[in-house]
Structure formats: C-alpha cells, structure tokens
Design a protein around this nucleic acid. Sequence first.
DNA 1: CGAATAACATTATGCGCATAACGTTATTCG
DNA 2: CGAATAACGTTATGCGCATAATGTTATTCG
Lengths: 200, 200
Amino acid sequence: MDFEHADALNQAIRLLSLRHRARAASLLAPLGLHPGQEVLLLELARSGPMIQAQLSEALGCEPPSVTLMTRKLEATGHISRRPAPSDKRASVVELTDSGRALAGRVRQLWCALAEETVAGLPAETAAALPGILNALTDNVDTRRPRHAHGRRNIPATETRRDGPAGRGAGPSVDGATGRGAGPSDDGAENDGAENDGAEN
Amino acid sequence: MDFEHADALNQAIRLLSLRHRARAASLLAPLGLHPGQEVLLLELARSGPMIQAQLSEALGCEPPSVTLMTRKLEATGHISRRPAPSDKRASVVELTDSGRALAGRVRQLWCALAEETVAGLPAETAAALPGILNALTDNVDTRRPRHAHGRRNIPATETRRDGPAGRGAGPSVDGATGRGAGPSDDGAENDGAENDGAEN
DNA sequence: CGAATAACATTATGCGCATAACGTTATTCG
DNA sequence: CGAATAACGTTATGCGCATAATGTTATTCG
C-alpha cells in the first residue's frame, strides 16, 4: 500500500476515534460520566455482578483502568464493590439502584449516538460496519490472537469477536460458578449463573 | 436503531480505537514516539513549517495538546520552535534534520500499520474505508459543521474531508503569506507558498 | 485613538488509556 | 509440604486527549 492510501486510512481511524469519543463525552457529561465509564456501566447492566478482572477483560482494557473507574463510580454511588466470598484477592462489582437507573439513560444516549454516527449512510453499509470494524480490530490486536502476552492467562483460542459476551470463558473463574459474580455466590445467584452457563 | 445494533457499532468503534492506537504505539515505541506524535511529524513533513495554531487545526486536536507535544519533540531535537517574525503571539514549528529522518521512518511504519489493519479484507472494501469512516466522523463532529463553537474562527463552509490538506484556509494566516510558515517568511519560502496557493 | 474583541501559546487540571512494580492470595509442581 | 508460579487489585507514573483560565499581542470597531 502506498503512503497516501495508508495515511488516508490511519488518519480516518484516528479522527473517528477522536470525534466519536468527543461526541460521546458531550452526551455523557450531563449524566456526570466520562467516556470509558459508560461501557463499564453497560457491561454490568448486561451481565450482572462480576469481579474486576472480568470487567477489564470484557471492556478490553487493563486492570488499573478498571480500578480507577470503579473507584470513582463507587464514590458517586453508582456501583458497589465487595470482597469475593471465596477469594480474598478479588472484589465483586455490582450496580446499585442508582447505577441501574443511570445505565438505562446510558442505553438511550448510546442509541442516539449510533444513529447520529451512521446518519445518511446506506442501510446495508451501516449494517455491515460492526463486522468490518471488528475485522480491522482483530487484525491489529496486539493482545491476541497472535501472541497472548497480556498479564492475564487468556486462552489463545478464544475469539475476539465475542467481545463482552465472551467473558464467561475467563480463566480466573474456571471451576467457580460461572459468569455470575465470579468466584462464588449465594444460592439465588447460583441458579441464575447456572442457567446462563447452560445456554453456552 | 435498537440497542443491540447501536451497541455493536459503538463498541466496534471504541475497540478499533483502542487496538489501532495500541498497535501504533508498539510500532512507534522503538522510535521513542507516542501515539499522537507521529501525525504531528507527518504533518510537518508534508506541509513544512507552520505555527502551532495551524498544527492543532490540521491535527484536529486542541492547542494545549500541540503545545505539549511540540515541547517534547523539541526537547528530543526532532523539531525546532521559533517566534514568528511578524506576530509575537505565534511560534513557527519546523522539522529538524533528525526530525525529517524520523518522519521517514514513521511513513514506513504507517504503511505497515495500514496494511496490517486491512489484511484479509476485500480490496474494494479497504479502498472504500477512508471515505466511510470520514463520513461517520463528519456525522459526530462536535466542532463543525453543525456549530463551529471551536475557539478558532473556523469558516463553517469548510469541509472536514480536506483534513490536513485544507489547512491553507486557516483564518489566522489570512493576509499573510499563505501556508508556508504562517505569519511571514523569507523570500525563498514565499515562492513555494504561492505556488501551492495557485494549485488551490 | 482607545476600548472591545479576537488570536496565540501556555499553564493547570481532569480524564481514561497504558506499563511497571508491588503486596497479598491462590494454585501448581516437584 | 514448601517453593515456584500465577492471579488479583492497587499504586505510581507517563501519555495524549480535553476544558478552563491566563497573559500577551494583534485586530476590529466606534
């Protein structure tokens, strides 16, 4: 590929990153949120309580980022953190009531953002975008599948395309209850976790 | 748009942003550069010396970011900064010899990055990507064209797609020599700048 | 001509990203 | 069983992004 085309592509990706994130920021600001935090709330709303390691994996970012974001969201009362019952290393993160309400509002603006993003694009182009973008992401993913040099022992066979939904395969909870709260839970949540597991 | 599709799109954009940037970081690290700095070097290599305001506009980022990046690149000897001869507010940024050499290496890895990014994609898809991505960017651009609330007085009629190449229309150098060094220059560069102007 | 406004770069601060290092806890291995 | 290894969350630090504020300089306006 010649430089001009390479530059056009790389710059397009860079500018989309900047502008999409900035637009998200402007939509999130009235909710008191910063870009990056919304996906954390959405993940907890979707998948329920989980340990931080699972969160960082689901979000595709490193543990210190999750540590700081959860700390701030806990401070604002939107999430709670408690030690995992069977693993003193781990803490379980869970939405509070206000966090669930906030996640609902995030869902709305998330839809608005996406609609705004693809406005004027042919419908079939818009529909194909996630797949195309994910293919690009897989190509440049430094963490996997080419060399899983991440600090967590992530199976190289796990495909990236599952994204947040693929978190159930996290090795840190192998042998535990599955995808519910991570290391362990009380009986009521066990039921829920097992049902999810059976779906897989 | 329903939430699932909206989420798929927004997450795809977010993850591509993260991973593309991380991959760029790994390629840039051996050169002692951080993501964001490469586009500054490439812009200077392409367009020649310019004041920082022009840089920030060309790069699509805010002036403090340029201030810090130029400071660091000046400290490593890759760029030089000097006060603009006819405007004491402005400083002209220019590649040094080592900066030009570095920009050459950035060009190479930039091509490699782009190729890696579109590997396995149909050629026509890859060719259409910059246009599609730029359309998305235009849709969510909070700075223009819907309301040019940026701090610089940017004409609302200027289209975003020109990107770096459209810098010549920067209002801050209206009435000056054009796109060369910004506020003013010596005779030799005046010739060059006027030639470029005629091209437009 | 002088006040008002705008442009320039900078500083301060906040943010989510990253890496590196660390201490504690859990698991594995010989 | 104990050493070695791995996992967890955290702290420290660096980075490019952003916004807000500032001081100086340049331009505009009445």
